[in-house]
Amino acid sequence: MLDDTAKNKLIEVHDLKMHFPIYAGIFRSHVGDVKAVDGVSFDIFEGETLGLVGESGCGKSTCGRAVLRLYDITGGSVKINGQEIGETPQNELRKMRPAMQMVFQDPQASLNPRMTVEGIIGEPLDEHTKLNRKEKLAKVHELMDAVGLNRTFSNRYPHEFSGGQRQRIGIARALALNPKFIVCDEPIAALDVSIQAQVVNLLEDLQERFGLTYLFISHDLSMVRHIADRVAVMYLGKIAEVAPRDALYADPLHPYTKALLSAVPEPDPDLTTEDRVILQGDVPSPTNPPKGCNFCTRCPSVMEICRQSDPEFREVLPGRFVACHHFNENTNAT
């Protein structure tokens, strides 16, 4: 996969920050921020799938939405196809929306309960294309076929579908405008295992057919291993490590990645679990992250410096980026 780096970058995220202000008291004074995403940088190459993994609450969804500018971000830059969209006002962004879409985490909540499937899938066509009614319906049916939904269901409401079907509606909806880039926010988390595989396979098929680029958010490491080309590991609003998939799974560098991977149930019992790392303590609050490295409170190999300064996120091996003081030393030593 390393040779893929030659491909051009579709998405470039640099030092992206998304802080949610907290107000309290009678006068609603600003007392702090939830630093849901706090200085994240990564690139996604055209046609690839970047997996984004991390514990619940670490800021994955926020990161995905911020990249699509569904939030007004606090800082940093986001480029899509070389065009900076970090500061673009929302109504100008609207015209660029067709190119970038999102499949949401909760298929039930993300569909308007009072709209039929046809309305949900067809609505953006009204806004961004000049299709007439018939063409629109044809397009809706085509999309339903593409995601494997029965066309005759087009007049039904979301609640009349199963969870897997709903997620297909969400995917069809995302595909309606022929996007280049789709953020898939745990598209399979709410589904049971057999259907998970169907949906993932569907996503892979579609990627092939339409040449899509995915940011695939998940906390399921084995699923990410299956679908992603490269993987980014997130912890408490920051990226701990980015690496090509095989390299990461074979040789995780960051202590957090190690801990995460060792927690994955090993299908082969012969492979010993002697070096399984169990993390101690709770995830600190994103409102008040620890000083220094944000993993220092739970890191099994924490050093004094980790409590003092924030490690730099840097490329330690070709294509492998890590934010950890251990590697600062190593590289310094060599």
């Binding site: 939405r65 699509l68 569904l70 929302q90 962004l93 609207r94 015209k95 660029m96 929306r97 067709p98 879409q101 999102m102 949401f104 985490q105 909760d106 909540a109 993300s110 569909l111 308007n112 309960p113 609505e123 953006p124 806004e127 961004h128 969400g170 909806r173 995302a174 405008l177």
Partner: peptide, 10 residues
């Protein structure tokens, strides 16, 4: 979420 969906639709 569906409001965010609508916004995402542009």
């Amino acid at each position: 979420d569906y409001v965010r969906t609508a916004r995402a639709k542009g």
